[in-house]
Design a protein around this nucleic acid. Structure first.
Lengths: 224, 224
DNA sequence: TAGTTTATTTCGCCC
DNA sequence: GGGCGAAGTAAACTA
């Protein structure tokens, strides 16, 4: 990993055109071949960058200033003119063992599969990831009257999720062994516009609390 | 901007839980109060981070190792245990003049709003970002016969955009002052599948050239 | 390898 | 400040 602190100007020409006037910035060159240019704000997002694979050509211009030309795929170009070099260091960091994550949508779906009465009183799970021609439905349940219920689980409920569930319902209702199938949209938070669309499509909405669900799971575990 | 190279372990507890085993990494502390932890790969994305505003508390643990506790909003916590400090430097970068972008959807939409006859001969703009219960339509126009036309603008025309326009048309057609409303899908490039779906929905497709549109704008400017 | 879906998405705009 | 759509989205997963 190479860290360059320098006063520089940058031009990007690729999927869009962007330009950075002269200022002091951090230029970060990683071992994976990527390059990113950071200012002292915007949190972790760089101002400009190039993803690997890309080639970096360092040269010196007419006035003796370092000049980098970075070429990425698709003809993308990043042009860096260094006007004043403050610092240029490199470190060999070695291998990255990797990040462990817990608590994403997959986990929420697993919790709901085990406690599907949270979605509706008396619901019984038929199966997780119930297959259809256009992809698997998160959960397929049956309610107290034996009616099939397709459940779409999201961490954040937005309009796309309602569309997705609508498509599944269209296909599931073609199966005479299942029809009529009703839909439930489950998420930690459901946006107002998604609720409007769901109502318009006859889909019910349920908001669940992740910590509470996990709490139920924990209490259950304590019983054994 | 502070740059720390160190062997460290990291734990994040917040929107999810995540853990990083011991390895050498770059810890980037920016003037905006953000912190991010980078490995030598994954391009510009850090392994862990905390967005501003957050507070960093540096202490020393039982074994004399530096220990950082970062608290963000919503009770999020980032815990960094430094096991070996390789380098710790700081630079004052000064103000960032900012990034100029050109060629994104907003610009395309603005150009089309001014020249909506490009979408259809004789089209007149009613308004940009015309509001509906499920979100704003990019452009609402009227054609030569006074029929309302909902226009969805994308940089890349894919199936999602056709779905989006279909939803808008459904809601707009409920308004007796507008109905019947027809739809036009405009993009620099429209994928074949999106064209098929649009045709199936009675939506017309128009492909426009960004440079040409900008060219028209430039020539207009030259006249004055 | 290509399409699909998620993301601690982040970011910007408008209300 | 909340809601919504776009992003040079990127990254992970699956068929």
């Amino acid at each position: 990993m190479r860290l360059v602190i320098a006063r520089c100007s940058v031009a990007y020409r690729g999927k869009l055109a962007a330009h950075l006037p002269s200022a002091q910035r951090l230029i970060l060159v990683k071992a994976d071949g990527s390059i990113s240019i950071h200012s002292d704000d915007r949190a972790y997002k760089p101002l400009n960058w190039m993803n690997p694979p890309c080639s970096i050509t360092e040269s010196t211009d007419d006035e003796g200033l370092p000049h980098w030309l970075v070429r990425g795929k698709g003809g993308d170009e990043l042009e860096i003119t260094i006007e004043e070099l403050v610092s240029d260091t490199a470190h060999d960091l070695g291998v990255e063992p990797g990040l462990q994550k817990d608590g994403v949508e997959a986990h929420l779906q697993a919790l709901l599969a085990e406690r599907c009465e949270v979605i509706g009183a008396g619901f019984q799970l038929v199966r997780r990831e119930y297959p259809t021609d256009i992809g698997p439905v998160d959960l397929l349940c049956r309610d107290t009257e034996g009616i099939a219920v397709a459940v779409e689980v999201k961490r954040r409920g937005e309009i796309d999720g309602v569309e997705q569930l609508t498509r599944y319902l269209g296909f599931l209702n073609k199966d005479p062994r299942l029809a009529p199938v009703r839909g439930v949209f489950v998420a930690e938070q459901i946006k107002p516009q998604a609720k409007v669309l769901a109502a318009d499509r006859g889909i019910s909405c349920v908001e669940v609390d992740y910590d509470e669900l996990r709490g139920i799971e924990s209490s259950e575990l304590r019983l054994f």
